[in-house]
Design a protein around this nucleic acid. Structure first.
Length: 169
DNA sequence: AGCAAGATTAGC
DNA sequence: CTAATCTTGCTA
């Protein structure tokens, strides 16, 4: 997943960024994961077939982008936490508003969704469709930093699992 | 039906 | 450190 290029085509324009930071949310018992709320309608998609897009609104104002990863019937998704803008950087600057340093264009889960114009309409979309998808452009993935996940302190022992992966530099 | 809290961010 | 802001999930 790291090093893959996320592409979103909107109105004929391609927005693309290299994925440099992700987090894994695996299994129905992971208290940090929405999948731990088994009755949840929202998280149901995490139990479905892989290759689907899972987008949700957090704190009433930020979107988070995930890709469902595990086989149908097994809960699992990867949260994209940061990308390095490649195509459509001008548009991303517009989406993020003036005064945003290029460095901060998409270096956070909410920021990358704003930069790449990803919102709830992408939820449950097929990540292999013609709207939003992943592609391999042969980027080398160098050293990878591995740490516990961010912002899930409420999840007890699950918060300590080193399931955050970030490309250094 | 009501309420508390969140896989965050920007601004003091 | 804290406000912003609204959907979701839990409780009554």
């Amino acid at each position: 997943m790291l090093g893959k290029v996320l592409v979103h085509r909107v109105e004929g324009v391609g927005l693309a960024g290299r994925i440099v930071e992700v987090e894994a949310y695996l299994g129905p018992e992971d208290l940090a994961s929405h999948a731990s709320r088994k009755t949840s309608k929202r998280a149901r998609i995490m139990f479905g077939p892989p290759g689907m897009v899972y987008v949700y609104l957090i704190y009433g104002m930020h979107h988070c982008l995930n890709f469902v990863t595990e086989n149908d019937g097994t809960a699992g998704a990867v949260l994209v936490r940061a990308v390095e803008p490649l195509d459509g950087i001008e548009q991303m600057r517009l989406n993020r508003g003036s005064g945003t340093a290029d460095r901060s264009l998409a270096d956070g889960p909410g920021k990358l969704c704003q930069a790449m114009a990803i919102n709830l309409t992408h939820n449950r979309a097929d990540a292999c469709g013609d709207r939003i998808w992943l592609e391999n452009r042969g980027h080398a993935v160098g050293r990878v930093e591995r740490t516990p996940r961010i912002g899930v302190d409420y999840a007890g022992k699950w918060a300590q699992k080193p399931w955050r992966f970030r490309v250094e530099n």
